[in-house]
């Protein structure tokens, strides 16, 4: 297990980025980075020292939930991270209709003219992860295993 636990400074920086992008103000107790710039959150009551001690006697494969990754410029919130944080989103939220949802959940990009940047994709009260706009299209980030397969 290779992880880098966030100290209060790094955590504060992350919240500031998420706040300016989407309005997110609070995060789970322990935040840490694993390989490939993936940021995960752990809401359990184990301390960081206990996690290290546990790792010495067990093979820890994963901890907590994958929440964010650092894009080239913007933070990207994971598919399940958006559900977890959905009550906090204040800006950069794109509401889509039924037809657009049908395309999105099958892994297709959406033809929409909006300012470039990262957006939360919302349909009614549900959120479906993030997409990045190039100005004309919203590029789809729905993980393959979470897409509707056929039909």
């Amino acid at each position: 297990m290779k992880v880098e636990f966030y100290n209060s400074k790094k955590r504060k920086e992350l919240i500031e980025k998420l706040n300016s992008q989407f309005g997110v103000k609070t995060l789970p107790t322990i935040i840490f980075e694993t390989g490939r710039e993936k940021i995960r959150g752990f809401s359990g009551d184990l301390t960081i020292d206990e996690i290290y001690a546990l790792n010495k006697i067990t093979n820890i494969e994963f901890i907590g939930l994958y929440l964010f990754s650092q894009g080239l410029q913007d933070m990207r919130i994971s598919f399940d991270g958006t559900t977890l944080l959905k009550s906090q989103f204040e800006h950069n939220v794109l509401s889509i209709d039924d037809d657009q949802l049908d395309k999105w959940i099958r892994g297709n990009s959406l033809n929409m003219t909006v300012k470039s940047g990262m957006y939360i994709i919302k349909h009614n009260d549900d959120v479906f992860g993030c997409g990045i706009s190039d100005g004309h299209n919203i590029i789809n980030f729905v993980p393959k295993e979470r897409r509707i397969k056929k039909g």
Binding site: F42, S43, G44, D45, L65
Partner: peptide
């Protein structure tokens, strides 16, 4: 792991061990 992610489980630590060895080491510590 995929099912834990899909269900939004955030209090879990996933370990890879045979059950007997895992319990024996946990108990020892």
């Amino acid at each position: 792991s995929a099912n834990l992610e899909r269900c939004g489980v955030m209090n879990s630590v996933v370990t890879r061990n045979d059950g007997v060895g895992l319990c024996s080491r946990l108990a020892k510590d």
